[in-house]
Amino acid sequence: MSPPPRLEEAWAAGQREWLALSGDSKLSTAEKSGHHIYVDRPDVAVRAVERVTSQAAR
């Protein structure tokens, strides 16, 4: 079941606000996933963790 469109719009606006807090941030989405991305799309979760850890290592 999909969330109502207004909720999706509000969620997306909030995500853009978080994104604007840093000049080095990136917003990624996990298509075909639910709330537990690490279960539904572990490939996306692993890439995100790898990206963050490589940035922290610099």
Rank of each mutant, 00 (worst) to 15 (best):
M1T: 04
M1A: 09
M1L: 09
S2H: 14
S2K: 14
S2Q: 15
P3L: 14
P3F: 14
P3T: 09
P4R: 09
P4W: 08
P4S: 11
P4A: 14
P5W: 07
P5L: 08
P5A: 10
R6Q: 14
R6H: 13
L7S: 09
L7G: 05
L7R: 01
L7F: 13
L7M: 12
E8G: 06
E8T: 07
E9D: 15
E9S: 11
W11I: 12
W11P: 00
W11L: 13
W11Y: 15
A12R: 15
A13S: 13
A13E: 14
A13M: 11
A13T: 11
A13I: 03
G14I: 08
Q15S: 10
Q15T: 07
Q15R: 07
R16L: 08
R16P: 02
R16M: 06
E17K: 07
E17Q: 13
E17M: 08
E17R: 11
W18S: 04
L19Y: 00
L19Q: 06
A20M: 03
A20D: 05
A20G: 06
L21E: 09
L21Q: 11
L21F: 06
D24Y: 12
D24C: 08
D24W: 11
S25I: 07
S25D: 09
S25R: 05
K26V: 15
K26I: 11
L27K: 08
L27W: 14
S28C: 09
S28K: 05
T29R: 10
T29D: 09
A30W: 03
E31M: 04
K32E: 15
K32L: 12
K32V: 07
K32A: 12
K32M: 12
S33L: 03
S33V: 04
S33A: 15
S33F: 04
G34K: 03
G34D: 07
H35C: 03
H35M: 03
H35G: 03
H35S: 02
H35Q: 06
H36M: 14
H36I: 08
H36C: 08
H36G: 05
I37R: 01
I37S: 01
I37H: 01
I37N: 00
I37A: 01
I37F: 00
Y38A: 12
Y38R: 04
V39E: 09
V39C: 03
D40Q: 00
D40N: 04
D40P: 02
R41L: 03
R41T: 04
P42C: 02
P42E: 02
P42Q: 01
D43E: 15
D43K: 01
V44H: 02
V44M: 05
V44N: 02
V44F: 05
A45C: 07
A45E: 03
A45H: 05
V46Q: 05
V46R: 06
V46M: 05
R47D: 11
R47M: 06
R47G: 04
R47P: 01
R47K: 14
A48P: 01
V49N: 01
E50A: 08
E50G: 04
R51I: 02
R51M: 10
R51W: 15
R51D: 13
V52G: 00
V52E: 10
V52W: 10
T53K: 12
T53L: 15
S54F: 06
Q55Y: 14
Q55M: 13
Q55V: 13
A56V: 13
R58P: 00
R58W: 11
